[in-house]
Design a protein around this nucleic acid. Structure first.
Lengths: 189, 189, 189, 189
DNA sequence: CATGAATGAGTGTTCATTCAT
DNA sequence: CATGAATGAACACTCATTCAT
């Protein structure tokens, strides 16, 4: 991920990614970023006119929320009759392509920086949509219970996001498979 | 909340609470806090030798996690046979006594300041314990299913904490009553 | 003017006055001002939140345009029948109380900084009003020639201000007494 | 003035002229000049090794002080017996060929940059010489009054230069025709 | 106990200038 | 000729903290 001969811009982003994840955006000075990247201070501002642009570039270029094309059921790999397994698979493949460092940044800076918040909001929607679709497909009988199905999808989304965000901080750990099974039961006949 | 004759220390904490909630700990200078509190700059350091001590004092004195005495079932107001209602009541009375401002501070500064993180961890445990106990009491039949019951309690905790922390940011809103009902169904029969 | 034990604020203003006059406002860095004043860099901003406030304070506190109370003829020391002498005296006592350094600053920074421009405008008006009143009093006969009298006052103002501002730069020097005599002749019978 | 196919050097000077007039030399960065001129940053330094050379080139190439060949009376269009008219014509045709932007630059940067100051000094001398010659020619009788004539020429020069430089700033406006008439009267019998 | 002047390292940012391509 | 990445000193300004009074 960090080529030995990476160009300066890449090295700056690499350094920022590591520092922002480690100590937060505010506490990572541009001078320190430049130092870590082994480039002169001024070069940071050549590529990123303002410090915030470094964060924006990171979120833009190094996080990707895999969005489901409308109507495609295949992508969720839903198995009719097996809602628990379907959700478990979703938990194992969160539609977020990002390094562990970028994941920390995404959650940590969300409430101070709009661009980060938006990306996080998209992740949230996408997880919710996938969970709902997975449940719809896996559970074809439950027609009348749209509201319950939505609550189940929202609950599963909360667990997944909570896991990424707070579980480490609070020491709480949840087994997504157990939650998947729980929700399957709740929607079961 | 801010008596006309509040003493200096209280006025400093009031100002810090408002500023930390509004713009974050890092972005609130001690000078600004003093200004808001209408006290001279030096006085802040008279009461709080270091800036971080202001945050620690706020968390210590202005957030309180109501902890359940061991074995007391009364406090959760569990109704045997009504797990959904029991959880709903828990959702409505999160065992966290803190102003909305302090709640924001608790979540925002959690991953940078240990003392805040600890308080948040206690809240998390307490919610989990209450949810578990509530389910145990409300659901006396489900003896054999200890693991499932724990997953249910953890799920409910995740939803409640997620609600406080991220729901506003991501635009996702969850009805805790619906989740309570869902979990009750999952544990049913 | 520069006491050996002058307090810090005064020393900062002294240093700024000298530097602004010597090299201009833009070219005088706050660090250099602090160095000249022998105070730490930060102290400049303790007294003057922004660099521009140093200039504003200088203009406010160290230039003074002596304004004529309405209707007072005594102040101009006009001698009826001696317009030339009256104007000469005005030239010798420009109603501007300011050090030579402050005079340079006043003219040099006028077109970039509003507060300076306003002070300069006041000086200009005051000189014009005094010249006009002097001529009115010294020249009681010239009733019908209000327009010519105004042109004469404006001309004299231009010469005085030009003298302060550009004469040194361009190498041109004018004898105000000769101009006074010229104008007196122009208005003469 | 700005041909569609103007070469890079011309475009750089055009941009610098506009920016220097608008915000001053110091406040106009070379990067901004390049941006306005739509040329790469490095090119500015290809044509002008130092930033100051841009200003020097502007003054050299875009301001011109029309200098009177010695002894030529025709150029001032002096009319013997009509000193007022002769001066009025001089006022209307200041021997300075320069755009309004260049005029601002000339006065604004005069006291910080020698080359500008010299050009301004030449303008000043030229106006003075023309005024003096005009008065000599228009007023052939006034031989004995060389001193008074010089004062009159200097006065007229001051009014003209003041007009260009400060009148706008201070709000004072002078009618050169009225001044011309005033001076003519002063030199009259 | 109260005060605000003093301190100096650090912050984000700008900029003229260089130079390899 | 043309280019834009690279450089590093300098800039205005912030800040937690100290301390004499």
């Amino acid at each position: 991920m960090n080529q030995p001969t990476a160009d300066s811009r890449t090295r700056i982003l690499d350094a920022a990614e590591a520092l922002f994840a480690d100590r937060g955006y505010e506490a990572s000075s541009t001078a320190r970023i430049a130092g870590h990247a082994n480039v002169p201070k001024g070069l940071v501002f050549h590529y990123f006119p303002q410090k915030i642009d470094v964060l924006v570039a990171l979120v833009d270029e190094r996080t990707f929320v895999e969005e489901l094309p409308d109507g495609s059921g295949a992508a969720v790999e839903a198995v009719p009759g097996d809602p628990a397994g379907t959700l478990s698979r979703l938990a194992r493949r969160l539609p977020l392509h990002a390094s562990p460092a970028m994941r920390r940044i995404l959650f940590r800076e969300a409430d101070t920086h709009k661009s980060v918040r938006e990306r996080l909001g998209r992740l949230n929607s996408e997880v919710f949509l996938r969970a709902r679709r997975a449940l719809e497909l896996a559970h074809p009988g439950a027609r009348g219970d749209q509201a319950r199905l939505e609550a189940a999808a929202a609950t599963f989304t909360a667990v997944l996001i909570y896991q990424e965000n707070l579980a480490g901080l609070t020491g709480q750990h949840i087994d997504p498979d157990a939650v998947a099974e729980l929700i399957a039961r709740a929607l079961g006949t």
